[in-house]
Nucleic acid binder design. Structure first.
Length: 679
DNA sequence: AGCACGCCGACT
DNA sequence: GTCGGCGTGCTC
């Protein structure tokens, strides 16, 4: 049949994979004015009065030939759109393209990505925003933004001081010419005038953003956690024009989040600061995406389709042609791969100054308390000297007091009788309790040997603090971990015991840094231990004052060398070489396929023809389920994702098996791409 | 999630 | 020939 008038192509907001494509609707005359690409709509679904929420993706002329690029033409009778929810086009064409691509490359749903990109609507906030837009647009035909960005009289670091550590014009040029860079951060602190110290890296990010804004474009800064965001925010408060910064952060309440999101929709260029979902923020004219510490696991999204913000940034960079910066003290193996491909160019600070890291193989301290606290002799002496001048950082592996107990008799780990979780102590002399379910184990008995006496198997920050208190009598002890977050510190002497990633930032830097528990951090069974440890250590070392010693205990070999020469790239390069040999990510990509044996086999059969694919398994997991791991070359990614997505759709459509009880719980076929913990 | 459609067995 | 049960697949 021939169609006339305009056709709305709509993405239904549903997690069902079989609905993950565009549906065509007609546009009633009374909605035509508001029915523009990007608005939220309500559409009838399956004729019987049910309505679904969706996004209007594009409006096309029905008479014109299909533009292609989407699904096969639909030639039935179109239903009309039921309503336009609001006139705000929340899903910009650029973000739609990004969401579609991110979903496609991981066999996921576009609407799952859009959920990260477009926060839930808040009617009051939206009305206020629309009201603020309208009069401004009438009075002033310029950009409808109440606080226009641009040069201002904000006190800022002199332009010639900007990026001075990186040599003449390298970073300015990168912004102006939209380059892609892996930038090594300057490993030191900067003192803000009338404020706390922040990492030098945070100032570099802020300067990159301001330089982008000065070229009239938007910058997106992606940071793993809120403490990192706070540091960049503090730098931007000094450097960026008032009102030019939007912070988009999942921690803030929904109304605030939506307000910040709407600000990003404005026509004026901005600086957008946020966590991993900030890569999906709408941007008027995108000039830069910058990520801090892309190896941090908080960059990977825990919800389907589990996209890593580095990958999303790479895709968006490719689509928009903006500049891309990965900034860090260490180098992720993924970034190293991109460098070796020539996709990212390396930039190092011109000064080459770095913390003075001293690896100390374990050598028991002469002091008995220092020995009890696992501090090597040299480190103990260093710390004692440094404590005369200011704060000293002790980085440890575990929070709590004694996170793990074991039987004195048979040495087996002590476990909860209810849930088999590990038992630990919350403080000195506390009753042992389960760390998973919290149950108290008042009269614990070992299930293996019926012994009734336990000993401390792993030592937490609390216990370390106690022991260090004895080793350094009279010194103030400060504990910083997940339960006791401390952001900033003064310059007074104190022994600061912190778990990795929770280190407070002292004014002027630590006078010494002790990296303890090296062996424990490396004992974890994961492909990424070395890389992670290097990240934790170098981030802590970068908090040292100029010239302060950083003592790395219990660690030798390539890791110690990478730290003492401050060349994490070398370590990343050798890791990558190993992964190539093993055919492990990120040398190749990988996906897991989980489901009923027959379904997994059917899915794997689809992959047989694709070059560069090999399959591990399937092996049984929980009884009805099996799991296979598919490894494939980056160049086969689209084919693998396409084939698996087709299989997921088929499986979802055919889910309801015969009602005859036995078959009832037919498991869904699950596919997960690029799981960092997979191999 | 609900509804239409089609294949197959049993009946007029 | 045709009615209807139930399994399968689609929803513009």
């Amino acid at each position: 049949m021939t169609r006339t008038g305009l056709v709305a192509r709509v993405l239904i907001d549903s997690p069902l994979p079989q609905l993950d494509h565009l549906f065509d609707y007609s546009i009633p005359a009374e909605l035509a004015a508001d029915a523009v690409a990007g608005v939220r709509v309500k559409v009838p679904f399956r004729s019987s009065g049910r309505v679904a929420d969706g996004y209007l993706i594009e409006v096309i002329d029905a008479a014109a030939p299909d533009t292609g690029g989407s699904d096969a033409d639909f030639h039935g009778k179109l239903s009309p759109i039921e309503a336009v929810v609001s006139s705000v086009p929340v899903l910009t064409p650029e973000v739609w393209k990004l969401a579609r691509r991110i979903a496609d490359r991981s066999a996921g749903n576009a609407s799952d990505v859009i959920r990260l990109a477009c926060p839930p609507r808040q009617v009051r906030v939206e009305k206020a925003w629309l009201a603020a837009q309208a009069p401004a647009a009438e009075a002033n035909p310029g950009p409808a933004n109440p606080e226009p960005a641009g040069p201002s009289d904000v006190p800022s670091r002199p332009a010639d001081a900007r990026f001075s550590e990186y040599g003449a014009g390298v970073l300015e040029e990168a912004i102006a010419e939209s380059r892609r860079l892996a930038v090594a951060a300057v490993p030191s602190l900067v003192a803000l005038p009338a404020g706390p110290s922040i990492g030098h890296w945070a100032q570099t990010l802020a300067e990159l953003a301001v330089a982008t804004l000065e070229t009239g474009r938007t910058a997106i800064l992606v940071l793993p956690d809120y403490r990192d965001q706070d540091q960049v925010q503090a730098a931007l408060d000094l450097l960026a024009p008032a009102g030019s910064v939007s912070r988009v952060d999942a921690r803030q309440p929904n109304p605030d989040r939506y307000r910040a999101f709407l600000a990003c929709l404005g026509a004026a260029p901005r600086i957008i600061l946020g966590n991993r979902s900030a890569v999906y923020a709408p941007a008027a004219d995108l000039g830069l995406i910058a990520l801090w510490d892309d190896g941090d696991p908080l960059h990977s999204e825990p919800l389907s389709p589990y996209a890593h913000s580095r990958d999303a940034a790479l895709v968006r960079q490719e689509q928009s042609g903006c500049a891309l910066v990965l900034l860090g003290h260490s180098r992720s193996v993924e970034a190293q791969r991109l460098v070796e491909l020539g996709w990212l160019a390396e930039v190092h600070p011109a000064t080459g100054r770095h913390p003075h890291v001293i690896p100390t193989e374990f050598q028991a301290a002469d002091d008995q308390y220092a020995r009890a606290a696992r501090i090597p002799s040299a480190a103990w002496h260093t710390a004692r000297q440094a404590l005369k001048q200011g704060p000293v950082l002790v980085q440890v592996a575990s929070p709590g007091y004694a996170p793990m107990l074991a039987c004195q008799g048979c040495q087996k780990a002590a476990r909860c009788t209810r849930c088999q979780g590990p038992l630990g102590l919350a403080s000195v002399g506390a009753t042992p309790s389960c760390r998973l379910c919290g149950a108290l184990a008042a009269d614990w008995t070992c299930v293996h040997c019926t012994g009734r006496i336990f000993r401390i198997a792993t030592i937490g920050a609390g216990r370390t603090a106690e022991e260090l208190g004895r080793a350094f009598p009279g010194v103030r002890i400060i504990i910083a971990d997940g339960d006791h977050p401390i952001q900033h510190l003064g310059a007074e002497p104190a022994l600061v015991i912190a778990t990795r990633g929770a280190e407070p930032i002292p004014a002027g830097g630590y006078r010494a840094v002790l990296l303890l528990d090296g062996q424990r951090m490396l004992a974890r069974e994961s492909l990424r231990v070395g890389e992670d440890a290097l990240r934790w250590w170098s981030n802590a070392a970068a908090l040292a004052a100029p010239g302060a010693a950083v003592m790395l205990a219990e660690v030798g070999g390539a890791l110690a060398r990478a730290m003492s020469t401050w060349q994490p790239e070398g370590f990343a390069a050798s890791e990558l070489a190993d992964r190539r040999q093993l055919r492990f990510p990120p040398a190749v990509r990988a996906a897991s396929v989980t489901g009923a044996a027959a379904d997994v086999d059917a899915a794997l059969a689809e992959l047989a023809e694709i070059p560069g694919v090999d399959v591990l398994g399937p092996v049984g997991t929980e009884p009805p389920l099996v799991r296979a791991i598919v490894r494939f070359a980056y160049s086969s990614g689209d084919d693998v994702a396409g084939a698996l997505k087709a299989q997921v759709v088929r499986n979802a459509a055919r889910r309801r098996r015969p009602k005859g009880a036995a078959f009832r719980a037919a498991p869904t076929l699950k596919v997960r791409f690029d799981d960092p913990e997979l191999l």
